[in-house]
Design a protein around this nucleic acid. Structure first.
Lengths: 248, 248
DNA sequence: ATGGACCGTTGATCCACGTCAACCACAAAA
DNA sequence: TTTTGTGGTTGACGTGGATCAACGGTCCAT
C-alpha cells in the first residue's frame, strides 16, 4: 500500500469543531472544549476515488476512518470466491472498527463514489480517550452501536422474506438520509442491485423484482438508482407482519 | 428487577488473577500487575438458573458480564413476535456490550444451563480503563471481536446453504470447546434444535434433517444433544465449496 | 411406574427464491 | 454516429428449505 500522502490542500486538517458532521460523527455528545481537543487527533484527510479501496482485508490496522464525504461499502470474501457485503456507510459513520481485534482489517472498504475520510490514528485515539472522558464514552458507544446494527442485520437475514428485507433496507436508507438533512422520501442509491442483494442475502434479480413489485403497488417510484418513497407507512406495514398468516 | 444480591458465599469476589479463565476472558494479554488491578473492578458474581434472564431488552444498562460458568443465548424479538437468536456465549465470553450505545440493553440474555457471571460495573470499567492501558486495549479488542464475529454470522446467513451453515456452526462450537480444554470432537450442545435453527436462519426441521444427513454420511454421530465429530475435514470441505457447481 | 410436556425425527407437499436466459437502458469509448 | 460494456428488467423453470403432520424418545413431577 502506498501510504505516502502528498501534502496538498486536500490533506490539510479541518477542525472537528468546524465540521458540519459533528452531530453524526465521533464528536456527538461531547462538550465544546472536548471537541477542541479532538483536533489533535484527526490527522490528514484522504480522498478515495469511486471503486477504490480504503483498506483491504489483511491490511495491518493502524487507523479508523470517519467519512467526511461520499459513501462506502464493506465486504468480505469467502475462500470459494463468494462475496458478501456487510454494510454500507455514509457521511459521519466510522470505518475500520473491525481491525482492532486482530490488528489487521477483516474486510474490504470500497468507495461507492468519490469520497473523503478523516484518518484517526488508533494509537492516538487510545491515548486521547484516556484523558478525554467524553471521547472514551463516545467511542465505546460507536462500537456498541455497530454491534447493535449488526444484530439488526442478523435478524433481517435470519427471519425476513425478500420483500421485507428490501422494505427494511429502504426505510433504513431513508432514515439515514433524513438524519443528514436530505429528503426522507427521495434519494439516490449509490450501490448496484447486486450489492444490495449481497447485503440482503438475495440475488440481484430478486431485488429487481421486489423493486418492481413495490412500484406496481404504489409504494415507491423507481428509476434506476433514483428512489422516491410514496407510501412510507405501507413499507413499514410490510416489515411488521409477514405476508402469509397474520400471526399464528 | 430485584437488584439486591444476598451476601452469601456465592457473591464473594474471586480474583481474576486466580481465575482459570484468564486466557479466554477480559484479562487476556494483560500483565500480572494489571490483572491484579482488575480485582477492584469485578464486583459480585451472580448465579442465573437455566432459562432465566440475565437481562432483558429495554433494561437499563449498568454492567457488562463475563461468564464464569455455564452458557447463554442472546435473542431479540421483533414486533410481530418472531424471535431471533443472535448468539450463543460460553465461559470467558462477555455479555451486554450491546447496551452501551443506548444505555439500555437491546437484546435478552438467557441462561442455557445453570450459570454464573462476574458483574462488571460499566462506570468502573470506564474509569479503570483510563488508567490501565492493557485493560483499555483488551476491552476494545473484545468489542471489535464481537463486530467481526457478527460479520461472520452475516456472511453465514447471507450466502450459505443450510448444510453449510450447520457445518460452520459445528466447527465453531468444536473450536470454542477446544479453546476451553474440552474435546474438539465430542461435546454436548446446550441449546435446542429450534434455537440452533433460529441462530442459523433455519427451521428446526431443517436443522434436524441436516444432522441426520451428516450422520448418514459418516461426518458426525448425533445422539440428541450429544455430538461426536467423526470427520472434521469432511465438515470443513462442506463450507468451502457450495454443493452444486464447483465454482462457475 | 406413569402421565405429560417438551424435544427431536421423518415424510409429503408447497412455494419463495435461485437459476438461466433474453433483452433493454444508459454511458463511455471509438 | 456506432460500438461496447455494465447494470437493470423480466420471463420460464427448477429446487432448497418451509410448512404441515404424525410419531417416537426423554425427562420430569406426581
Amino acid at each position: 500500500m502506498k501510504a505516502t500522502v502528498p501534502i496538498t490542500v486536500a490533506s490539510l486538517k479541518v477542525a472537528c469543531s468546524q465540521c458540519n458532521l459533528v452531530e453524526l460523527c465521533l464528536p456527538f455528545g461531547m462538550s465544546e472544549s472536548e471537541i477542541d481537543r479532538l483536533d489533535e487527533l484527526v490527522g490528514a484527510r484522504r480522498k478515495i476515488k469511486r471503486q477504490q479501496h480504503l483498506y483491504r482485508a489483511g491490511d495491518p490496522f493502524e487507523a479508523i476512518y470517519a467519512i467526511r464525504a461520499g459513501s462506502f461499502k464493506t465486504d468480505v470474501l469467502l475462500e470459494d470466491g463468494r462475496e458478501q457485503v456487510t454494510g454500507f456507510q455514509m457521511t459521519g459513520e466510522m470505518l475500520g472498527l473491525d481491525g482492532i481485534s486482530t490488528e489487521a482489517h477483516s474486510c474490504n472498504a470500497i468507495a461507492l463514489e468519490d469520497s473523503e475520510v478523516c484518518v484517526i490514528a488508533y494509537s492516538k485515539l487510545e491515548e486521547l480517550s484516556r484523558v478525554v472522558e467524553g471521547l472514551q464514552l463516545q467511542f465505546h458507544k460507536v462500537m456498541s452501536r455497530e454491534i447493535v446494527r449488526d444484530h439488526g442485520v442478523m435478524t433481517l437475514l435470519g427471519s425476513m422474506r425478500a420483500e421485507e428485507r428490501l422494505a427494511a433496507f429502504l426505510l433504513n436508507m431513508s432514515q439515514r438520509f433524513t438524519a443528514r438533512g436530505f429528503s426522507p422520501a427521495e434519494f439516490h442509491l449509490r450501490m448496484t442491485r447486486e450489492e444490495i442483494g449481497s447485503y440482503l442475502g438475495l440475488k440481484l434479480e430478486t431485488v429487481s423484482r421486489a423493486f418492481s413489485k413495490f412500484q406496481d403497488e404504489g409504494l415507491i417510484a423507481v428509476q434506476q438508482k433514483h428512489i422516491r418513497i410514496l407510501d412510507i407507512t405501507g413499507l413499514k406495514r410490510l416489515i411488521q407482519h409477514p405476508s402469509p398468516s397474520p400471526r399464528p
